[in-house]
Design a protein around this nucleic acid. Structure first.
Lengths: 134, 134
DNA sequence: TAAAGTAGGCACATTGAGGTAACCTGCCAC
DNA sequence: GTGGCAGGTTACCTCAATGTGCCTACTTTA
């Protein structure tokens, strides 16, 4: 709840800082931007269950607008997290799927979910306490 | 590079979805918002090395404005990631430090950094390829 | 002929994160 | 006094992310 006597620092992070990983064109930003968008993780989430078509995705994430669905899928495709395959059905359909790289990213999301699950009660408690004092 | 035959889904994620973790007041959002801000991770990064005073933090992250430094520190404190301690020195000084909860969050950041380190070349390759085709 | 379902595109408004710059409150030294 | 440092706060502005609504082009079904 208060200051910690500091468990020893994670050396990877110390090393990362020394390599300049805190700069603006930083590779980590590329990844963080995926996590930060409102929809990207939800879509990765859906595709992690299995490949899905455009319309199915839209119904799976009912709040998303068509525009944001298209746009988010594009940037995820652009960065190689998902693939887009047009199938020559009668009305051509488009299937989206995780790539191997995208799939390798999901364990990180799973860990974040797990951490959030373990800590969100304390976070909300701290928040209420902080707000109460003004 | 193309569609993956889908390694088996991570059951924690499937379970999370069934518990409604994709909703708007979702606990995961609370955590993702920390990662998404421009400065929060950098400040956690600095405090992970050790406790630091306001002015030291400002010099450690030279691009940050006083306003954003104060603001980001406040929200991190509000959510219990860091602690704020006023010390009765001649001009009173303020020391910021990771809390235990904040420290427990750092391994996740370390993993994201490691993943970004391994994959950013491919991401940028995919991006260039995608942009070339138009 | 009309409706409804495929997968989008385009134009505009909103909104919130972030930046800039100035001011403030103590306390110290000159 | 005047100036500086510490740690802020406040007002104002910008810009990118996101939302809303309407449009296309094609095909199947009623």
């Amino acid at each position: 709840m208060t200051a910690t006597p500091m468990n020893e620092p994670i050396m990877d992070l110390v090393a990362a800082k020394e390599r300049g990983f805190t700069l603006d064109d930083c590779p980590v930003r590329d990844v963080l931007d995926k996590l930060s968008g409102k929809w990207a993780t939800l879509l990765l989430f859906e595709l992690h269950i299995g490949p899905k078509r455009f319309g199915v995705l839209r119904r799976s994430v009912p709040d998303i607008s068509q525009r944001m669905l298209t746009q988010t899928l594009r940037t995820l495709e652009r960065d190689g997290f998902i693939s887009r395959t047009v199938k020559p059905t009668k009305p051509p359909s488009v299937e989206y799927a995780l790539t191997d790289m995208g799939a390798s990213f999901m364990p990180l999301i799973a860990e974040i979910v797990a951490w959030a699950d373990q800590n969100h009660e304390q976070i909300r408690l701290m928040r209420r306490t902080f707000d109460a004092v003004e």
